[in-house]
């Protein structure tokens, strides 16, 4: 149980996908302008990460490894994720239209989001069990959510600031991201000390 908590917390704070692993930077910079779109995008990412892990993990363990096809991992995973996202979109549209309305816009964007492919591959690389892999995906998704929501707050402050012409737009956003990421460095070592193994 302690191990699960450690995995969850370190995925959210220490190895934050956006701010310390640099996965999913495109949506982080692109969709974080407003709080509601940032929330929508990150909920969709959490959702897809969990489902993608639930599907790709058994595929790796029961299909690829016994048949010595590990080298097909990249192709199989990206195809599974792409197909899954399409499927989820169709299912949501048909059965839960309200949810589709709020998450639907972001779903197609997620196929090419490196955070989702990244989490499925990292789960395998780290040698997690199925439960640990699911917890890690949840933590990674929550970490993405946290970074997006925090950063959309930061960006709304930048909007009104008076900044040099050449820094307007992307450069100032990146520098704000740098400072946000600096604040996450402070979490280093905290989790290890809270749960000494």
């Amino acid at each position: 149980m302690t191990k699960l908590i450690v995995i969850l917390l370190s995925a959210v704070f220490i190895n934050n996908y956006v701010l310390s692993r640099f996965l999913g930077i495109c949506p982080f910079l692109g969709v974080s302008k407003k709080l509601d779109s940032a929330t929508g995008m990150s909920l969709a990412v959490i959702f897809v990460m969990m489902i993608a892990t639930a599907v790709t993990f058994p595929i790796q363990i029961y299909l690829l490894v016994p048949n010595h096809l590990e080298y097909l991992q990249t192709i199989v995973f990206i195809l599974v994720i792409a197909a899954l996202v399409q499927l989820v979109e169709i299912v949501l549209k048909r059965y839960i239209p309200a949810l589709h309305k709020s998450l639907g816009v972001y779903l197609p964007l997620i196929t090419t989001n490196c955070a989702v492919l990244g989490v499925t591959i990292l789960n395998i690389d780290e040698g997690y069990t199925f439960l640990e892999a699911m917890v890690n995906s949840l933590g990674s998704g929550l970490g993405f959510f946290l970074a997006m929501v925090m950063f959309s707050g930061v960006r709304s402050k930048i909007e009104g600031a008076d900044i040099p012409e050449s820094f307007k737009g992307l450069p100032v956003t990146l520098i704000a991201a740098s400072i946000t990421s600096l604040s996450f460095l402070g979490f280093g070592g905290v989790i290890e000390n809270m749960f000494p193994v």
């Binding site: 820094f167 992307l170 990146l174 520098i175 991201a177 740098s178 460095l185």
Partner: peptide, 28 residues
């Protein structure tokens, strides 16, 4: 990690400043 964002931001700002062509406003 913070250094990565910082250096990238500064580089793009420099290109905006000294680039020959007028920088297009980056809307997302």
């Amino acid at each position: 990690a913070p250094g990565g964002f910082f250096v990238f931001g500064i580089l793009i700002a420099l290109i905006n400043k000294f680039g020959k062509h007028k920088p297009k406003k980056k809307d997302f």
